[in-house]
């Protein structure tokens, strides 16, 4: 087996307020291999985005990464200097956000921004940088890239802007892309264009991708492996087929059942009752217990530890029996 590109062990990120420190990410383990697409799935407040930001140490006060290891190609990012992190970000590790305007500067033309991104990490002439930028734009399906390079972010539509952000992220052929809900605000036809580009690039350049989303269906179509998050921890992880076809954690089962595609038209959906606990009011034991139909007495006392079998892991005292129909 190849050396993992990214190895995360026991990552814990808290947010401080007057009343104390609340764990948004609570002991997350992740493994990403070169060229692999990992889907990180969760609902709002599950800690999936904070996990993404924590990986590249982009957590500002009142947030703080308090423990765990983040090893990128064997290098510990948690102890890396700010300078080292900056040179990694945008070069070996790229980030794509839901709002592309987070990475695009409104007062600079697209070309200038892309050249800057190239020249920051590499020694090359402006001419070459421009050429490369226009190549990157055409790679994500933007026509007449030379003309587009002279334009400003506001002259692009939302979908185009996101493609520019992706093209910029890909400029230096990173080893890892962390994408935080990049298609959530876009229409399905645009989303499918972007998924297409990302998949193609991952296949062609061997770039690994962590795709953070709330949408299990997108993960099913795009990813190799999936990690399902709930209340700051990964409750189930494995290959897409394992997790989506043979889910063991009751939350994963509930999430799949909540999707309209799981039931025939007009039938009631298998809903999960209740709502996810807020970060400051997580129950003792298993955080999913109050919403869980399979909860046992032990779930109230002991937070289940991860069980891993053949790469399929889950955290549950009373997992759904294997092979039981959804």
């Amino acid at each position: 087996m190849t050396l993992p590109l990214l190895e995360v062990r026991g990552l814990k990120t808290v947010f401080h307020d007057l009343a104390g420190a609340w764990p948004a990410v609570d002991g997350v383990d992740l493994l990403v291999h070169p060229g692999e697409i990992l889907g990180l799935v969760g609902e709002s407040g599950s800690g999936k985005s904070v996990t993404g930001f924590s990986l590249v140490q982009l957590i500002d006060p009142p947030g703080e990464v308090v423990s765990g290891d983040v090893l990128f190609k064997g290098e510990d990012l948690r102890s890396a200097s700010e300078e080292r992190l900056r040179s990694l970000r945008g070069d070996r590790i790229a980030m794509i956000f839901q709002d592309p305007l987070m990475t695009l500067n409104p007062v600079l033309s697209i070309g200038e921004q892309m050249c800057e991104a190239i020249q920051e990490h590499r020694n090359c002439s402006r001419q070459d940088a421009l050429k490369e930028a226009s190549r990157a734009l055409s790679r994500v399906g933007i026509s007449s890239p030379e003309a587009r390079l002279k334009q400003f972010p506001h002259e692009f539509s939302g979908g185009m802007r996101q493609r520019v952000a992706i093209a910029t992220a890909l400029l230096n052929e990173p080893d890892l892309i962390i994408a935080d809900e990049p298609t959530t605000a876009l229409d399905v036809t645009i989303q499918s264009q972007i998924l297409f580009e990302v998949q193609k690039l991952s296949r062609e350049t061997g770039t690994a991708v962590i795709w953070i989303t709330h949408d299990l269906a997108v993960v099913a179509e795009l990813a190799d492996r999936v990690a399902v998050m709930y209340a700051g921890r990964i409750v189930e992880t494995g290959t897409v087929d394992d997790v989506l076809d043979r889910p063991r954690h009751p939350y994963t089962v509930g999430l799949l059942g909540s999707s309209a595609a799981s039931a025939s038209p007009g039938e009631r959906l298998k809903q999960i009752n209740g709502a996810a606990p807020s970060i400051s009011a997580r129950p003792s034991g298993c955080p999913f217990r109050p919403r869980c139909e399979r909860a046992l007495a032990v779930c109230e006392q002991i937070d289940p530890s991860p069980q891993i079998l053949d790469g399929h892991g889950y955290r549950c005292h009373n997992p759904v029996p294997e092979g039981s129909a959804l």
Partner: peptide, 16 residues
């Protein structure tokens, strides 16, 4: 065709 479905795996996207 573009709307994602959990039933499809590792599909080759054919964008509009």
């Amino acid at each position: 065709a573009a709307s994602p479905s959990a039933a499809r795996r590792k599909r080759d996207f054919q964008p509009l």
